[in-house]
Design a protein around this nucleic acid. Structure first.
Lengths: 331, 331
DNA sequence: CTCTCGTGAGAGAGCGCTCTCTCATCACCC
DNA sequence: GGGTGATGAGAGAGCGCTCTCTCACGAGAG
């Protein structure tokens, strides 16, 4: 009991396969009464085109790969960045009838898998959610002559269109807020330095401290809550008198708040805290977190548009989305 | 400049296309020296099989659809349930070389899209992350004669293999813990009653209250933090003397904790709180949350195995995974 | 009334692969 | 030495579709 073919539809409608194909593909060179007959046959038979056959001849697949290159299970599952970006990209792509193949590229083995798959012509394009600098994927894929776009600026200089948020400017705004509210000893919990977001947000912090003649106090985390808690303890050891901390993402800020609480510090009275990303959880910390809104969904949507432009020859200049300071109670 | 075909490989290796195909597909009936010649040709040409051509003849696609049926943007992005389950399923499927097509089925329009796609034979099977009872998808897909499995028991009685966690037993264990620690007025913030998880966890709560001769105090949320906060305020209005609350998921518990704080209630001194799921964030609330561990990743992995069994004729009985009480400081 | 041109429909090749069928070859045994 | 069977390799059909090429037909022009 196999699915009806175009042949069957054509036979039922009393036309040739070519004509049936014309109707299916919406060509206008078909007389109305014939078109109706074909459509009726399609309906009656429950015909659905075989995509393998179609893409065999058209050389298109109408699907794109979304490659997520994040080794850490915890980060992937816990950081709303990924789910938000994936969901937004999905919605955008479904709107233009493209399928999304989701792939993980965490180990060298899976890298090979991804490369093989992509070069197998299964997809018309690739969207890369790759955060790590050492990641060989951006350059590998750009060599494959497949349209590739990136969510976030690739850490290695490679000619791939990308969309990023203004990490440096956002960090500057956050730290400037601390300076302007009279904080003197402003520490930071930086993100991983093999990620652009980690590097740029630290750069922003340094820029403002330099200009405002303050000493930088740095601990490094890996964007997880736990690393934020550990880094905060370390900072309190390094400089017990610190009165503010700029944390490179909200997840780490959550951990930092816990460490501050355990150390008996009041927030914001003793120590002001500014996060980054404005995830939903930031509204529910004690106290609610002052942070920088990172437009993750918009970023993903813009990435999809960039990929489309790559297909259709539109502009593919990098896009940098602005961030916005959201002042709550922690600073 | 198109990709090399099997024909080209065969020509270069000096064999027929059929023999080259045998080598590619790992058949053993090829003499070693010929196999080597073919492999060398493949390597030199950088040959990658054309999957469209292959699945056109084999009628297989080596890919499965992962259909996420969750209308709420916020829930999808914020609840680690989705990202954890998706990631785990992805890892399991990549291990057996299956591709994953991720699809959203939130609106009636996208339902039609999904159905059309599935019935188009693009995928060998479907995994359903559908939580809502009114969801027409499970029955629609089961009619399509495509292998389907479900993450979570489908809300409508439909003959689909599924994996779930022990919602009732978990809720009972959580509430029993509250009873055993001497709480008298135990309220609950239930999940949406059109979801099995919402229904079953409420049922578990009711079971224990009934047996321990306590009155039930119920508010209903929708599994978001915000709804938890609202429900908690409502409960405090309904019964200011309540001394415990069982919250149907951790996200809502986070919101509830905030409302309790704002109402000046100390946790656990005045009000004990038990959540459900044991998400990472549960360790970072103030105070850390006592909750029930819901093995989301294992559940997804088991679902993948179930789908495999469906392909290969193994057992496809429903699987119920146990939950475990994790006692922290909130109760 | 013939010629040209536009329009709508059919014929048929071919996308790249798998797989059955067929055949050649060789070892083995009586 | 001829028959038998196992083994390895090739020929070729065909998966379901698109798309070019061709052609039939009718309208309009000369």
């Amino acid at each position: 009991m196999r699915r009806p073919t175009l042949e069957a539809v054509a036979a039922r409608a009393g036309v040739s396969r070519a004509t049936a194909s014309r109707v299916v593909n919406g060509q206008t060179t078909v007389a109305p009464h014939i078109r109706d007959a074909v459509l009726r046959a399609i309906d009656e038979l429950g015909y659905v085109p075989n995509s393998a056959a179609r893409s065999l001849v058209t050389q298109r697949t109408d699907s794109v790969a979304l490659v997520v290159s994040e080794p850490g299970t915890r980060v992937f599952s816990e950081d709303p960045l990924f789910s938000t970006a994936i969901r937004s990209a999905l919605v955008e792509l479904e709107a233009i009838n493209k399928q999304v193949v989701l792939m993980l590229a965490s180990s060298p083995k899976s890298h090979a898998r991804v490369e093989r798959y992509i070069s197998g012509g299964h997809v018309d394009g690739v969207m890369l959610l790759s955060m790590h600098g050492a990641d060989p994927l951006p350059s590998a894929l750009s060599r494959l002559r497949v349209p590739v776009v990136s969510y976030g600026r690739p850490a290695v200089p490679v000619d791939i269109p990308f969309v990023d948020n203004d990490n440096v400017g956002g960090a500057e705004a956050g730290v400037r807020h601390l300076v302007e509210t009279g904080r003197r000893r402003i520490a930071t919990i930086a993100g991983p330095q093999d990620m652009i977001a980690g590097q740029d947000r630290l750069a922003g912090y340094r820029n403002v401290l330099r200009d405002s003649d303050r000493r930088s106090i740095v601990a490094v985390g890996d964007f997880t809550r736990e690393s934020g808690a550990i880094a905060m303890r370390q900072l309190l050891g390094d400089d017990p008198a610190l009165d503010a901390v700029f944390v490179a993402n909200d997840l780490m800020a959550v951990g930092a708040l816990q460490s501050l609480r355990q150390a008996g510090r009041r927030v914001p009275d003793d120590v002001a805290v500014v996060g980054f990303d404005d995830i939903e959880a930031a509204k529910y910390t004690e106290p609610p977190l002052t942070t920088l809104r990172h437009p993750m969904a918009e970023q993903a949507a813009a990435m999809v548009r960039l990929l489309l432009n790559l297909f259709e020859g539109g502009p593919t200049d990098p896009i940098i989305l602005p961030t916005e300071l959201v002042v709550r109670e922690s600073a």
